[in-house]
Design a protein around this nucleic acid. Structure first.
Lengths: 340, 340
DNA sequence: AACGATATCGGGAACGTTCCCATCTAGGGC
DNA sequence: GCCCTAGATGGGAACGTTCCCGATATCGTT
């Protein structure tokens, strides 16, 4: 009964020809009606074809469509690791943005090894992606121009290189907001867990810190500024040197939430209290930090906006436009007025 | 100069025919030599072809290859969300396992909405995946049999349904280990943040808890067992009722690290100390918890092994085999002997 | 030296779709 | 009533690869 329709080849797969045969039209017509890029036709033929396709359980063979169309409607993103919540948020946002625009997002990780970005890009490129979003840019490695040379469309996200197309947060502003918040609370000796020097977003936040201090007429003791990795361990290490200072800074701005968590842990283990002994501000507002026993003051980054911006630049084929998204300070319990 | 090789069509893309022309062999020969599934031939023709391919910058068009081969060598995974570190770890492990076996992994998220799993599966299926790994199984939704009916190969991960192919952790053992650890430390009144009832892994850990208590001859007061979500908020909520009990339990086993973090936060905010007032054990050993100011005692789950197991079952085409991976207790600072 | 077995190679068809182009139909204006 | 145009439709080629199969070359055996 249900089979008398499927008396074309017994191949298993329902193709556009099966739909065409059952609906009594040509494959061209079916193809046109089912083309999601065209405006949705609404005549009786179209309705019949769509209904037949649904009944037969037709699903387009993407490989065949991609081959013919010469495009895969798939975009790749390269991140250091997805277990970093920031990167998971960015990718989830990007995947949602892609879905809204009829694209599909795939992801590859570099496990934080700088050289692995080439392997990751190759693996995505082999999958036939139409373009790449990189969240791994390092100031000491000009991978972007390699991609340019190879003619691969790409956009940088979160971290820029100063000339490639990029969708970034305003890190200078964010660093300024965080630092200014601490200054407003009366702090004068404000230390900085500065992040790695190879990442432009860390550098931007550092710059914002210096700008805020300078505007307030506050000198910055170089020993207050501790470089670090982006990780929890990085924050834990960096804060050790800060705690040894005499006089000890009364506040710390950490380049991201991970380093803030690491710092928090060491500070509390040293018997000091946050915020009464030391105020602390993080960056990114990952979901975790609002749930800590002392909820972290931090700077919220609009990852949805950054991801959507990256996608737009990619689809527009831009090679040099910069999109800058504005961050917001989220005051919570780890920052308090100096001397209570 | 470099162009006199590329005097075939000026199409832009270098195809197998270009390689064949330059190397002076047929496209069939090139195809065979470049076929990664065949044992690597090592005669002079093969070497020449490979060299020419590299020089010309040939990369196989996956769409064309997939179309002809009838397989995409791509596998899909569906997880609730990647911002849950457990899921990010699972997916990263799965992607690595796929790379080892010459496959590629793509991922879709359901944002924890049970009905979204169908949309996620469709989106992956539309991308032509050869099979699916589901980490979203609910005991109250028989999505697995829908997939069976549609003839789509799939394997469950982390959470099983009792009959489908699945790669799981031994949650009963893990729950037993965690509870037994607390019993060994002298605790008798041990509360449980039980997780959601729709997740088989939570149920397994609950079962392990009851088994350990029963084996030790300890009664379980039903009020000690608080159902919860898997989230930080879930843990925070659940622990509130536990803290109100009189007598108050001296230890808590939380169904996962997130709920443990939520519980920890509430406990500390209530002015109680961990572990001197209350011992706490989590589950999963996400990277974060070893870096908390009081590092969390937890149960480590071998995600690499679970992901690799899921892939193997998928490739083997199993429809009912179960793989069970063994967890390990990781004692840290949140659990201590009763009365110090 | 002749033969069969074995490995290597090339031509052509096929995978399922999209797109170009030619054909047909309907409808409006004069 | 006729012609012109716009729109809908169908046939066939093309996308780049793999795979079947027949042809040719290579080798060992008697």
């Amino acid at each position: 009964m249900a089979n008398d329709q499927a008396d074309r080849k017994t191949t298993g797969r329902v193709t556009i020809l099966d739909v065409a045969a059952v609906a009594g039209v040509s494959k061209s017509t079916v193809s046109r009606i089912l083309d999601e890029r065209l405006p949705r036709a609404s005549n009786s033929t179209a309705d019949r074809v769509r209904q037949v396709a649904a009944e037969l359980g037709y699903v387009r063979d993407v490989s065949a469509a991609n081959l013919r169309r010469g495009t895969s409607l798939t975009l790749g993103m390269i991140v250091p690791r997805l277990t970093d919540t920031v990167m998971a948020m960015l990718y989830e946002s990007f995947a949602r943005a892609c879905a809204r625009r009829g694209r599909f997002a795939i992801v590859a990780t570099t496990d934080d090894r700088p050289e692995a970005v080439r392997a990751a890009a190759d693996s995505l490129f082999n999958r036939g992606v139409d373009g790449l979003v990189l969240a791994t840019t390092r100031t000491d490695d000009d991978f972007a121009s390699e991609l340019s040379d190879r003619g691969i469309p790409f956009v940088l996200a979160l971290r820029g290189d100063g000339h490639s197309a990029a969708s970034l947060g305003d890190d200078d502003l964010g660093g300024w907001l965080a630092t200014r918040h601490l200054i407003d609370l009366g702090h004068r000796q404000i230390a900085l867990i500065a992040g790695p020097e190879h990442a432009s977003n860390a550098l931007g936040r550092v710059q914002g810190y210096h700008r805020a201090m300078a505007e307030a007429g506050l000198p910055v003791d170089p020993s207050w500024v501790a470089p670090s990795a982006f990780s929890i361990e990085g924050g834990a290490e960096a804060v050790q040197s800060i705690l040894k200072l005499d006089p000890r800074p009364t506040a710390i701005f950490a380049v991201n939430d991970n380093t803030a968590i690491g710092a928090m842990s060491v500070i509390q283990r040293a018997g000091l209290s946050i915020p009464s002994d030391i105020s602390l501000v993080g960056y990114n507002d990952i979901p975790l930090v609002s749930h800590l026993s002392t909820p972290l003051t931090t700077v919220r980054v609009p990852f949805d906006q950054i991801a959507a911006g990256a996608l737009e630049l990619l689809l527009a084929g831009s090679t040099n436009e910069q999109r800058i998204a504005t961050p917001t300070l989220i005051p919570r319990a780890t920052s308090a007025a100096l001397g209570r």
